[in-house]
């Protein structure tokens, strides 16, 4: 990968990687750190990675780094506290997007990750499996169950409103 291709990768994928991480952990500073780490690793291995594989490499690296951070913070007890605040129910919805964002927070980390990779980035089950380290069949199960939960949440909110 040349410098030009690397810089083009920054333009194309940094937003997507940042959004993916931020929506999972809801912490801008940590998300920035993870994105920067991912791009540093990409640069360090630029001579081994073809430009068409850069996106997958970035998401894989960022996802694994994120999981490490989540696990570490869970051990330290920070995560549950943060989640409790973030998951507090918000009934002042103005549209389906907000409800869906709220519903997304109800999902488990892995469900949220796979469905975001599917919907935002358009990856197929196999590609998502490579990024998350899951089998293709497992990815499918997580996505189907996540959609069921999202649908149930949309229905329940609809009933409340």
């Amino acid at each position: 990968m040349t410098v030009k291709e690397y810089n083009s990768t920054v333009d194309q994928f940094s937003d997507g990687v940042f959004r993916f991480i931020w929506k999972n952990i809801r912490d801008s500073e940590k998300a920035k750190d993870i994105v920067q780490d991912a791009f540093i690793k990409l640069w360090e291995n630029a001579d081994k990675i073809a430009s068409d594989k850069a996106k997958s490499y970035l998401f894989t690296t960022a996802y694994r780094r994120m999981i490490d951070i989540i696990r570490r913070e869970k051990k330290q007890g920070n995560w549950d506290e943060v989640k409790a605040l973030e998951y507090s129910h918000n009934q002042n919805y103005s549209g389906i997007s907000e409800v869906l964002e709220e519903a997304l927070n109800k999902l488990s980390e892995i469900q949220r990750s796979v469905i975001m990779l599917r919907d935002y980035e358009g990856y197929n089950y196999n590609e998502i499996g490579e990024i998350t380290g899951l089998k293709e069949s497992q990815v499918k199960v997580y996505i189907f169950r996540a959609r069921k939960l999202l649908k149930d949440y949309l229905v329940s909110v609809d009933n409340v409103i």
């Binding site: 920035k32 389906i96 919907d119």
Partner: peptide, 12 residues
């Protein structure tokens, strides 16, 4: 409706 829509509001 459970399909997440791409949001350009979040940028790096």
């Amino acid at each position: 409706k459970t399909k997440l829509k791409d949001s350009n509001a979040i940028v790096f």
